[in-house]
Design a binder for these strands. Sequence first.
DNA 1: GTTCGATTCAAACACTTGTTTGAATGTTAG
DNA 2: CTAACATTCAAACAAGTGTTTGAATCGAAC
Lengths: 214, 214
Amino acid sequence: MTASPTTCDRILDAAERLFADEGFHATSLRQITQAADANLAAVNYHFGSKQALILAVFRRRLDALNKARLTRLDAALTDSDRPDLEEILEAFIVPALAFTHGSEDAGHLFMRILMRAFAERDDQLHRALSAEYAHVMRRFASAIAVALPGVDEQCLRRHLDFIVGALTHTMAENGSSNGQAIANDLVRFAAAGLRSAVSVRNLDGATRTLEIHT
Amino acid sequence: MTASPTTCDRILDAAERLFADEGFHATSLRQITQAADANLAAVNYHFGSKQALILAVFRRRLDALNKARLTRLDAALTDSDRPDLEEILEAFIVPALAFTHGSEDAGHLFMRILMRAFAERDDQLHRALSAEYAHVMRRFASAIAVALPGVDEQCLRRHLDFIVGALTHTMAENGSSNGQAIANDLVRFAAAGLRSAVSVRNLDGATRTLEIHT
DNA sequence: GTTCGATTCAAACACTTGTTTGAATGTTAG
DNA sequence: CTAACATTCAAACAAGTGTTTGAATCGAAC
């Protein structure tokens, strides 16, 4: 039999599920500790505060996710001299979906939490997360810049935002079903979108402009 | 001089800003009424409850946004017999950005709120919104299906999710700056992504599959 | 001026929140 | 065994929550 999970882990699991279902502020420590079969004071004892618990829930999964992404990115880059755009995008997208198919629907829950974190304007959380998240995004940005020479830097950053938005939104919306089909779609969708940026610029040197009514 | 805004409007404005900054549950009625220079009981008097206020904040902007989208979509469809994909996408994307450039940063705030609504698992809010939102999405889906014959229906629905995710994420993240450039990028990005779906199917009849490690 | 409906107001309601405390318990080392 | 430490527990804390209430105030219509 596996060692029974510690109080810390039970609290993290319960908090993850409740945060995903109800939101950070809407979830009370009493709900969490009751679901975790722990005493109310356990949260403040083990983590210090509710805010620190939120960060802990985050780090546990995000560290693993970003590490898997970077490992796969490195593998794609050393595979050949000229990196393949699709392989780079798979390195970013597939681990997120592998997550979803992992232990129960932990990944699915975490994607909902990740989306909340983007929505939350909580500066403390925002800063703490972007510290390591920015590093990962920069690695992928430069990898794509190599695979797709001639793409505007600012444009590339925007497109990465598109991909992050599309990924988190669909992951949060659709459950853990059809992960593979979604990954296929998103990789192709994103690759085509990225390639369109350089081809347009190479053909006529300027993008079409739209009028925006104000 | 313009007629001074009613208490209802002041409450809606204050609530919109605070909901975007702090979240639904994190903002108290006391914060809202104080910012709106109204009495605490005014919210329950005019709207009935906090939950009803949240819905009211939503409807005020979402109605206008979706109406603008559909108007522009109709214009694009009657323009010519065979609708242009880019025009359809502009009908969906540009009004959201025109919003952003409208009164102050009201649109920017509302996009953050919209993102929260997707993240929130509040079933009541979810159901109330998807009622009219689903209708708009269906209109756009069938318009794209005409402009892009041969695209798989399920695949199209997923791609619309990608676009919604990309739009809300970037709108929420970047402020009201560079709205036009973002709209240009997203329209081109989305169009290329959508076209890639039909071309792949038409060329070899099957999509590439990725292994997902679990 | 008076009456009537709509609106505002201050005060209180019952309840939940995150956090702290100090004693009780379990666990490990000397 | 005992001493020291880590962990759990029930209880209380002050502060904040959404909502309700009943009186006060306003603005027209008669």
